[in-house]
Design a protein around this nucleic acid. Sequence first.
DNA 1: AATGATCTGTAACCAATGTTACAGCACACC
DNA 2: GGTGTGCTGTAACATTGGTTACAGATCATT
Lengths: 211, 211
Amino acid sequence: MIQELKYNYRHLFEEDLLNEISQVGTFKEVPAGFTMMAIGDYVRGMPLLVFGAIKVIREDKEGDELLLYYLESGETCSMTMNCCMGQTKSQIKAVAEQDTKLIIVPIQKMEEWIATYKTWRDFVFLSYHTRLNEVLHILDSVAFEKMDQRLVNYLKEKIRINKSNTIHNTHQEIAYELHSSRVVISRLLKKLEQLGCIELHRNHIKIINLA
Amino acid sequence: MIQELKYNYRHLFEEDLLNEISQVGTFKEVPAGFTMMAIGDYVRGMPLLVFGAIKVIREDKEGDELLLYYLESGETCSMTMNCCMGQTKSQIKAVAEQDTKLIIVPIQKMEEWIATYKTWRDFVFLSYHTRLNEVLHILDSVAFEKMDQRLVNYLKEKIRINKSNTIHNTHQEIAYELHSSRVVISRLLKKLEQLGCIELHRNHIKIINLA
DNA sequence: AATGATCTGTAACCAATGTTACAGCACACC
DNA sequence: GGTGTGCTGTAACATTGGTTACAGATCATT
């Protein structure tokens, strides 16, 4: 554990803090597709990603979904902190986008370290900062952009996160994450194919050029 | 200044911090409708509201607007902190909803106090926490709700903030804040009037019952 | 009272998105 | 090879919201 921790966080935290983390943290591995947290779950710890990626999804009462953003290694989830500090249930769902490795730090420690380690404090602030910007970014896209543009952005982000030009999802899955319907997504994807931007196949999409 | 500060923040901050704030802070009064910050402005200080309310608005490149949330007395704007710490330009517009009084604290002090005062740290975290939740709330409403419901929520929030059952806005102004068009808003308002929920007048709307 | 500006109401139309329905295809499993 | 399941393509239609256009109402100013 300590190696993977250091590989990702050495440039952020001092030796003492890294040691503390490795003492109180729990190492976890989760497979792609695994739901790590559902709406209403109580949050017991703060995740530090060391490998992989997690997608964070908003859900309304009817179960409609909307992808918010991805967490990558070296990052944490300020939503989690949000819940910890507010002592409330989770407002979001977290699903592993890839096979993922992470370290869970107990809530209590995370609050303690805010007082004692400046680097930890900066890390937590930066995380809030980043998440707030990402949620604003999604808000922009939902409020100001049309579905075709949102779809293109979604595909771009997906290949960036997964470091691959092939997207292994069905149209239905994409529709859920954009809070749209399968037929609409199929329609727009077909248009993109006709423009030569992508190639459609069963269960996967090859990205050629999204400009 | 010190009285107004204490009235709103005594329960949050210790005496020492209150005194520091009153020494380095600048008192400001702004009239309703005044634009306190525009997109692209550089942020020079952190505002602590002591009276009134400020609306915070997101804007895209085309100048399309979307109301994010209101700041009330006893609150600050984590967007501002967002900008301060990231050293970036403002991503939002802030307009006084009412005649408003506030204290501006220099950025440098605000970072210093995070290390030295626990109450300040908690305040800053709580502010991030609240803003993140509010932006999520707006996102929910834009992503999952239809315009009629969004309009009702808008009206409700407006009377809550202004502590009055009469809303002094034109349909056009409401349309801007919801990122819709005047005709659509007039249409929906008329429906609400027919249901007996509101009364429409020139330049103002009287709220009867929004259930 | 006449003028002009602004605000509101309404109709007609358009575009984007969502819904329903169904056909054909690919794949896994028998 | 036959069958069932899930994925994709497509048509027809409904709904929501945005656009254009214009008439009438209200208000301030002269």
